[in-house]
């Protein structure tokens, strides 16, 4: 029992998923209008309005080097994530999901860490496989610190 966690697999590009504990996902939404944000990063798409908050929307695949050409349309979903390290500065942010995130109960034995594979970006904490599905575990501290630095003016 204690070895199992409820996790969510978020498809971020074809054959690539993000693995997160379910407790971090506040809500999964359909695509909504993206408001522009005045910054230059390709992976920060803008902000979306959610429950009265304007939260940043990121494309994790682009952040970690993917050269996707598919435009962001209404077939996409958004996973709203709770910040865990810097909640006072940015309580929530959203990740682009290409498809519907999948809930999965994962036990220690289901997950295999791939230490032999090299990680090409600081935003990825580790690479794992769960029942033959590869997934990235994001480095939330890196992700949140960078998002805050890029989207919020210095005090």
């Amino acid at each position: 029992m204690s070895n199992e966690i409820r996790a969510v697999l978020i498809p971020i590009e074809e054959d690539r998923k993000l693995l997160l504990p379910n407790a971090m996902v506040a809500e999964v939404l359909g695509m909504r209008s993206i408001n522009s944000l005045d910054q230059d990063e390709d992976w920060i798409l803008g902000t979306v309005s959610w429950r009265g908050w304007d939260i940043p929307l990121i494309d994790f695949a682009v952040l970690t080097g993917s050269n996707t050409e598919q435009n962001v349309d209404s077939s996409f979903n958004l996973a709203v994530l709770k910040s865990i390290n810097h909640a006072e500065n940015m309580p929530y942010f959203a990740v682009l999901s290409r498809g519907i995130p999948k809930l999965q109960l994962i036990s220690r034995g289901d997950m295999q860490l791939h230490e032999e594979k090299s990680i090409n970006h600081n935003a990825i904490a580790s690479l794992v496989s769960i029942q033959d599905e590869m997934a990235d575990i994001p480095n939330m501290n890196y992700l949140e610190s960078n998002l805050i630095a890029l989207t919020q003016p210095a005090a």
């Binding site: 005045d38 798409l45 494309d59």
Partner: peptide, 15 residues
């Protein structure tokens, strides 16, 4: 330029 260019490039991904 500015935010509109960012939107066209990174969200609509125009070519």
């Amino acid at each position: 330029d500015g935010s509109k260019a960012h939107y066209l490039r990174n969200v609509l991904r125009v070519k």
